[in-house]
Design a protein around this nucleic acid. Structure first.
Lengths: 309, 309
DNA sequence: TAGTTGCGATCTAATTTTTTGATTTTACTG
DNA sequence: CAGTAAAATCAAAAAATTAGATCGCAACTA
């Protein structure tokens, strides 16, 4: 007739009903409190009676008596519901106490221009967060997918629905030359630019800089004299030579001591952004770090946008 | 469109689903394990996603990745389900450690004949159980209903569906006389009996002994010379007098030192039993005590039954 | 001692939730 | 680029829950 009730069928609402009935010693009052029919309360209590194998409440001369077992159960039920509620509540996140490892994948550019500020902020605001930087070197997205990294920072343009992305700012290209270079004092025309001897930063992997893509689109090609994997040490290569290097403007400031910087005649820019996946999308730590990095770069962003606009 | 899911709607089955999916990293495997459709698992996880405001599981390159939040939730969910399971399990009862108050309502008869053995057993087997005896004096059932007493012991005959009852044994009536009494050496006929001078034990309250009810049924009446509220002190009243007292046989042994005991010619007996209510019906302590009392009186019971049969 | 009342139990029908089975979508993989 | 494994989604079916009405019982009322 009545099939046995599996304990697992009990939901927290049923425990809530139990608690209210216990509180009021009345099915009817509990029903009012919960905004349901008395019959529903009766139904629920019956289910609980089966599950706990105990009458829980017994009517005796007008009063509703509570069995000892019921007292015990209610006490535990209160605890369980409170704990469950806490579990469903959006987790409080306090950067001060958050202690976990956070892995950022990026390359030289970001290590030089973005990471230092991040580290400073973390030291101050989230001293227990352990930061690890790993190389993105062309396979940043893969490393994200493999959960080797929590966050990717860089000039990544893949628009893939499985990646979340937030742009930080755009960076235009500039040319670095030796101050004694014949072309060092004039604005460069595209033709001038193409006529020069270039040192090309490959950034390793299969990355192709935006300005190269743009040149290809125009059907033009650079005269590359030297290829280097990273902008690190560019200054020493360019100084005293007739080479020209094309690098993002912000990066140039870090590697151009003693060099002349002039605008690059190829009309393009690179966009630096954050990339992550659904795994971390709603993690409070992750959201906090993302916001923090975004805020750190807001000055740069508005500057760039002003220039671009 | 989709109405918000209330956290309270989550049942322990849903948490179980979460735990299995987490375990297998697969909706399909979890569904198999739980004997349901993959679609049902999907449905449940979606509900949990809403409640926890977190994707929990994310498909990435064939693997199912687990969010940090999900890890936390699963850990708690495991604890909660285990605790709930323990709560639903029938409570272990160990008389050795059971520490609570147990109130028995009864009268002189039971205090003399039944309680002493109970006390001895409790001291030995349930040393932490605190026993209190209160007077039943006619309102034993009321005291049960008011939860003033946990258990009533006595010759109570009310058959009321709200009371549970278990008979211990039957006790026949005997007559006590002074050894020098003229009738002390013969079996008493009913007419002899009715002709004697009686001392009547009223037991207070509105209790009427079975043998009086039986006499009334026969349309006969006792010649009552003296009424006393309790059998206590009966010995002193009967000795050296021409009075006869009618008492349950077992009780007589406690109050008849130096008196002659002979069978009572009224064909009747009193049944001593335990009475309790639904409030305590399933309480492990209560069940244990009831069983214990029943066992203590098993010898008496079989003796009586043998005599009766 | 009947009439009334309060309150949980119970019944039926309505509603909502959950499950199923089939199909689609997604994100690789070869 | 087709093939595949697995989750998402959809419509229909099944099951659980709720509401509304009524019952039963004990307790008060007069």
């Amino acid at each position: 007739m009545t099939k046995p009730v599996d304990p697992l069928d009990i939901d927290f609402r049923a425990l809530q009903v139990l608690i209210w009935v216990h509180q009021f010693r009345s099915f009817t009052r509990a029903a009012e409190e919960l905004g349901v029919n008395q019959s529903a309360v009766s139904y629920t209590i019956n289910k609980l009676r089966e599950v706990f194998q105990d009458p829980l409440f017994v009517r005796q001369s007008r009063r509703l008596h509570v069995t000892q077992r019921c007292e015990d159960i209610v006490q535990q039920a209160k605890r369980l519901t409170v704990e469950f509620r806490q579990l469903t509540a959006p987790p409080e996140f306090d950067p001060k106490t958050a202690a976990q490892k956070f892995v950022i994948a990026c390359n030289f550019y970001e290590r030089v221009l973005i990471i230092p500020d991040i580290v400073k902020t973390l030291t101050r605001e989230a001293p227990n967060l352990e930061l690890e930087i790993i190389d993105a070197s062309g396979i940043g997205h893969e490393r994200l997918m493999r959960n080797e990294a929590d966050l990717l920072i860089g000039p990544f343009e893949r628009s893939d629905p499985q990646f979340y992305r937030r742009d930080l700012y755009r960076d235009r290209y500039v040319c670095l030359l030796d101050p004694a270079h014949p072309m060092a004092d004039e604005p460069l025309s595209l033709e001038d630019y193409l006529g020069l001897d270039h040192v090309l930063v490959t950034y390793g992997g299969q990355w192709r800089s935006r300005y190269l893509i743009e040149l290809e689109r125009l059907g033009r090609e650079l005269k590359v004299v030297l290829r280097v994997p990273s902008p690190a040490g560019l200054e020493q290569l360019v100084r005293g030579s007739n080479l020209v290097a094309t690098v993002p403007e912000r990066l140039s400031k870090a590697v151009s001591a003693g060099l002349r910087t002039i605008a690059c005649p190829v009309e393009t820019s690179v966009t630096i952004g954050l990339v992550w996946t659904a795994v971390n999308h709603r993690s409070p730590v992750h959201m906090w770090v993302r916001d923090m990095i975004y805020r750190l770069n807001s000055r740069t962003r508005t500057l760039e946008d002003a220039q671009a606009g």
